[in-house]
């Protein structure tokens, strides 16, 4: 059964990111892949509370700034509500830094999905994002009280592309 397969995947990924120790850059890349899959592909939005600093600020496109962890959660909820079948494909991850001083990460990925949920633009359109919807982000990870957390982030999506999918012609 598909649900069983997904349940097992989520358990395996959750185990992989739990109490993670980012000793080197390859650990960081593995963590980013698994964590990204959990949040977007498997809708494990609640894990944001595990890995974002509470007072995190995320700078986004068009002068938008998310202040605090609740704003980050809301942002992801709105995206997944609009595209409940959302999947992301990571194309590349660049890592700089080390375990002692923290890491800087640049992630490039593509969003794929269909607008089958209500959005601020109205009822679902049934339109697909296609496979060119680009997402770039740069974020910083530091060890805080023994736990690796994202302390700052800059995150941009192809908003025009998403709006096209969420609006009728």
């Amino acid at each position: 059964m598909l649900a069983d397969i997904n349940a097992d995947k989520i358990k395996a990924l959750s185990e992989a990111v739990k109490n993670i120790d980012l000793k080197d850059k390859s650990d960081v890349k593995e963590f980013v892949k698994n964590y990204t899959a959990l949040i977007y592909d498997h809708q494990m939005i609640g894990l944001i509370y595990d890995y974002y600093q509470e007072n995190v600020e995320i700078l986004k496109e068009d002068r938008i700034r998310l202040k605090g962890i609740e704003a980050v959660v809301q942002d992801k909820q709105e995206l997944l509500a609009a595209f409940p079948d959302l999947k992301v494909k990571i194309e590349n991850i660049i890592v700089s830094g080390d375990a002692e001083n923290g890491y800087k990460i640049f992630r490039r990925m593509r969003y794929e999905g269909t607008n089958s949920g209500y959005t601020k633009y109205g009822p679902p359109t049934g339109k697909s994002l296609g496979n060119a919807c680009l997402g770039l982000s740069m974020f910083y990870m530091d060890k805080k009280s023994g736990q690796w957390q994202i302390t700052h982030e800059m995150d941009m999506r192809s908003i025009e592309w998403m709006e096209k999918a969420m609006t009728n012609d």
Binding site: L59, D62, N92, I94, L136
Partner: peptide, 11 residues
């Protein structure tokens, strides 16, 4: 820059 910055990211 009006209130906040116009961010740009690239790889």
């Amino acid at each position: 820059t009006d209130g906040d910055v116009c961010l740009g990211l690239c790889e």
